[in-house]
Design a protein around this nucleic acid. Sequence first.
DNA 1: CATAAGTGAACGAACGTTCATTTTTATTTT
DNA 2: AAAATAAAAATGAACGTTCGTTCACTTATG
Lengths: 203, 203
Amino acid sequence: MDDTPLTKGERTRQAVMQAAYDLFLEHGYAAASMRQIAERAGLALGGIYNHFPNKEAIFSELILDRHPYRQILPIMLNAPADDPESFVRSAAQAMVAELGKRPDFIKLMLIEIVEFNGRNMPKIMESVLPEVLPLVQRFGQQKGLLRDIPPFIFFRAFLGLFFSYYITELLIGDTPIIQTQSHALDHFIEIFLHGVLANKETA
Amino acid sequence: MDDTPLTKGERTRQAVMQAAYDLFLEHGYAAASMRQIAERAGLALGGIYNHFPNKEAIFSELILDRHPYRQILPIMLNAPADDPESFVRSAAQAMVAELGKRPDFIKLMLIEIVEFNGRNMPKIMESVLPEVLPLVQRFGQQKGLLRDIPPFIFFRAFLGLFFSYYITELLIGDTPIIQTQSHALDHFIEIFLHGVLANKETA
DNA sequence: CATAAGTGAACGAACGTTCATTTTTATTTT
DNA sequence: AAAATAAAAATGAACGTTCGTTCACTTATG
């Protein structure tokens, strides 16, 4: 599309971002040093400061660029919208699959919470809101088919349930004590669609 | 109950633990220094090493002692067990209330994930499993009343949904862009019990 | 009075950042 | 197309801090 080659400066800037991203995910923010970032990006320590004013600026730019919502929302928007049930099924599948492909995307957000006390959250929310609104509205439009729940709550519950499905899967996966249940995601979807209570219609 | 007074060593040991706990939650693990911990605990830097071999040992002991499950599980066990619906309602309320009283308890777990890559998770799971099992079994016993879902999945979905309810409430609360919905928790409970789909019985 | 607990200076290492200097790049002038 | 040139990028030593840990020593405890 854009065949103007990246300027040298822009290329090393990207290299620094990628190196910092990898190291932040690996060790957290404070424990990842500028020297490590420089080495992995393939330039000298001082060179970083030609592209970023300081360490925190690298993280701030990363969290705005790569927080998990940015990856997941477009995918959910592309899920089929015919009826709510099949939308939930395919959106949940797509979301978990995408998280699985990029198992580290969540960590950046956790670092933001742990080491910055959510200082960047307002900026993140602001930047992602335009992408969230169409999704929320989609839930709102299906009035008759859905239980009477505010669309934004619907959205929060959806994200929360399947986020935590993914995170627990990730954590339990490394733990030999608890074995992962196959088809667990299907059960989560079932709970989200129909709840945990058995139907009383048979009474 | 136990009126044998704590030995001097035990008292400062506790003070170090509490100081480290506060500072880890405030700044994360790497960014909280031993000097800060010593100062807040009210003793000299070197004194810490009479009670802990190194910094990481303090964290390891903290995460085993104070991870959120230890606080929440007993409360859930005390929820009324008559029928699943009222159990879910009161257990969810109790869990969220307890998290609200100790808004920092989750953070310790996040630090474990971010800065230690979940290295302590197996030990945590092992220590908490005896408390989890009776809860899971309670779900399993209510066969007829519940949808046919493995008890452990039920448990994961319950914790995940209301954990994430609490976390988003916490994060959104600081963000003026998005306003918190009142009665949001009730809606979450409704979703967990009955799902998001409207009943088709009226057809 | 033996041992546990507390002190604070000292250690080497690593940290983020700065800076004078050199090298490379991209553009303009021959 | 070659040479000139100003700006951008890269270098690595150096600065001042701070880090986790150790240690010889003093004080307090049981």
